[in-house]
Design a protein around this nucleic acid. Structure first.
Lengths: 342, 342
DNA sequence: GCCTCATATGGTAGCGCTACCATTTGTCTG
DNA sequence: CAGACAAATGGTAGCGCTACCATATGAGGC
């Protein structure tokens, strides 16, 4: 039962085939599919029957071309494997799974240049919305976002000057809170250990520093960082460096949980008692923080919710009712655990 | 300097604008961009200048519509947060970053039905290639893949009957190898602890079972599984269940490294000596396995390479030279560490 | 020098869909 | 009951690009 195929098309049914079979105009089929309310119930049923029988699926490319708008959410993250962004992306996917929107993820590798390139590529598709991680776009990237002609949500952080909308929390406050907690617990020589040191890590460091300075305990030698990407292995190594540099260290605030775990393992290996000799605090509160022995204090961030919230805001903006609250601060939560319970 | 904008377009330059500026036909611009070799050097330069000056970026939707082929790789994975798939996806991204291909990821949530739905959606775009995780597609999904009209690569596993191409390794062999290692190390009451129990986990379990039966040591009570998604916390709980069921347990092969880490932490907490009282082996060999205390034996899998290899094969097929080796087994590597060094 | 053939370029006609602007019909107002 | 107006449907003309089929030009064969 080969239906006559056009010169180039793959031979799959088009909207015209459906229209013919249902005995209506093509435009009515188009409407029945997109705005069912505007087509009478009768025709709607007929059309649905024709669609089912032919197995018609609209061509998103033709749709995008004709309507000058693709049903695509562009998402830009600096890393695919970092659990933090994976959670945000998961939230985005889950929120969009019942919508007609497809998702396109770009991996910027923490590079502003790469971000610009991807923005260019994404923009050429006329996406329905853009979600980008971070608030430190290059001037050129920022311009691309401003001219994207679609809702833009910056996620992971909050800041004073959104391109359009923002969902996140203050990394500075998160860092300060963790450091203050260590101070309250009685630790004095509290180091900061950080890898990658992207802008968010920098702000956590700044928060840590503010707390330490307020306590009159800041010392630059307490800081150990590297631009190298974060890993558990690296956490262990950095901790050894930190200890070598400052043997009287009695606490560490880690950039993230991978580092914290590495520190914990090194303590085990070197028979350093946690929390007695060394207090450890992490950041993000991955699942394993609560199970480790001892369990590790961490700053819980609401990553999945950042994703879902960003989508909700973008969807609202697409629907025409832009949320009046353009900057949403989802906050964080200090999870006090054994590793700082002196 | 507003250029006259057409009725609907966003006003961005089109190929016709470039053609006019360069004083050539539109089709020549199209060719210069896609097959530079077929356009004289002279025109090519002129066209490039016009492109740069106008800031022209081709519209991928129009391109896809006209050529009946979108420059998109569709990727289907069961989870976005599971590090294993994140690594594969990273490999795919890195291999495709310099190509014109965009990537579209679908999250099947380990559901065959969802996989079918996504295949339908992806298929409607006429992607350049499809990469799907696993070899256990539903009959309907398999049919969709066979009729996709593009190269298809099944990844993560190898099996006898590829839809088109395959890159992965034998989970059965991986499971057997881990169990055999524990046996060789002198462990006898070796449990299997697994979460999620997707098809790959099932095959690892089968491999474990084969090894145990060959040694005459298999006992169904050694097996502790749950359909619940894997986590470190869950590893700890399952280990407690396993111990309650069989207090004489002297080793465990864990479904994956998260579970293994949970087991290790529980051993610490319950003062069970590793590897003396209990031997632990994991699967996948995440970074932290080599740093933990004690370090944990694991089966290293080549996840990133699975991604890069899958792309390479798909790209070759697109270019017309289908690799003669349609099934690529990347194997695995047993990493012997302290946790099984009795 | 005629013919073939490869190379370089262009014109035309869509790809499958929807925006825009009719047209038709029925309903309500005064 | 004319006039106004909303609701339901359709026709036409593209969206921006490329497949296909010319056409023009020069190189090479005999």
């Amino acid at each position: 039962m080969t239906r006559p195929r056009s010169r180039r098309g793959g031979g799959r049914p088009t909207i015209a085939d459906v229209a013919r079979k249902a005995g209506v105009g093509a435009i009515t089929v188009s409407r029945a599919l997109r705005e069912p309310g505007r087509v009478s119930e009768d025709l709607r049923r007929q059309i649905q029957a024709a669609v089912d029988e032919l197995g018609y699926v609209p061509d998103p490319n033709a749709r995008a071309l004709a309507s000058a708008r693709a049903e695509v959410f562009g998402v830009l993250v600096p890393s695919l494997t970092n659990n933090v962004f994976a959670e945000v992306v998961r939230g985005i996917y889950d929120s969009l799974s019942d919508s007609p929107f497809r998702i396109q993820i770009g991996n910027t590798h923490y590079s502003g240049l790469e971000e610009e390139r991807l923005l260019q590529v994404f923009g050429s598709q006329r996406p329905a919305a853009l979600i980008v991680a971070g608030i430190d776009q290059t001037p050129s990237a920022r311009r691309l976002l401003e001219n994207a002609g679609c809702p833009v949500v910056q996620v992971m952080e909050t800041g004073p000057d959104p391109v359009d909308m923002m969902v996140g929390f203050s990394h500075f406050d998160g860092g300060r809170t963790a450091a203050e907690h260590l101070l309250e617990a009685g630790y004095r020589k509290i180091g900061f250990i950080g890898a990658r040191m992207d802008p968010r890590s920098q702000r956590r460091l700044a928060g840590y520093r503010a707390a330490m300075e307020a306590a009159g305990l800041f010392d630059p030698r307490l800081i150990t960082t590297t631009p190298v990407p974060s890993s558990v292995t690296l956490g262990r190594e950095l901790f050894r460096d930190a200890l070598a540099k400052m043997p009287t260290l009695d606490g560490v605030f880690c950039n993230n949980d991978d580092i914290a775990l590495g520190v914990l393992f090194e303590c085990h290996r070197a028979s350093i008692e946690v929390p007695k000799q060394i207090g450890i605090a992490g950041f993000n509160d991955l699942d394993m923080m609560q199970v480790s022995f001892p369990s590790i204090t961490s700053v819980r961030t609401h990553r999945y919710e950042i994703g879902t919230r960003a989508v909700a805001m973008a969807l609202a903006a697409i629907a025409g009712n832009r949320p009046e609250q353009r900057i949403v601060d989802l906050g964080f939560e200090l999870m006090r655990r054994e590793s700082t319970a002196r």
